[in-house]
Amino acid sequence: MSLIQKHEQNLAGRDFIVGDIHGQYDLLLEAMARVDFDKAKDRLFCVGDLIDRGADSFKCLSLPFEPWFFGVRGNHEMLAIDALENGGKNEDLWMINGGTWVITEDKVEVRQLLLDALTYLPYARQVEVMGQQVGIVHAEPPADWSLIEGASAGSKEEMVWGRKRIKSMDTTPVAGIDAVVVGHTIIEQPTWLGNVFYIDTGAFQTGRLTLINAQEALG
Rank of each mutant, 00 (worst) to 15 (best):
Q9D: 13
A80C: 01
D26H: 13
L114C: 05
W101H: 00
I136Y: 01
L84R: 03
T171G: 09
F69G: 04
F45G: 04
R43L: 11
L79F: 14
M130H: 06
Y198Q: 02
G207W: 09
G74S: 07
K6L: 02
V181I: 05
I96L: 13
Y123L: 15
Q5T: 15
G71S: 03
E140L: 01
L114S: 05
E157V: 03
A139H: 10
G183V: 04
Q9F: 06
D36K: 13
Y25W: 13
M130A: 12
L93Q: 13
F197D: 02
R73L: 15
G176W: 01
A12F: 02
G194K: 00
W94K: 03
W94L: 08
L113G: 00
G98P: 11
G48R: 02
T201R: 03
F70Q: 06
R14C: 12
E109N: 14
S2Q: 15
V180M: 08
D170G: 09
V102W: 03
V134P: 00
S2L: 15
R73Y: 09
L114G: 06
A31N: 07
M169Y: 02
Y198E: 03
P142R: 02
V18E: 06
L84A: 11
G23L: 05
L28P: 00
F45A: 12
G202P: 03
E157G: 05
I148S: 01
L29P: 07
P190K: 05
V18L: 11
T171K: 14
N213T: 02
V129R: 08
K6E: 13
S168R: 14
L50E: 06
Y120F: 10
M159E: 14
L193S: 05
L118Y: 03
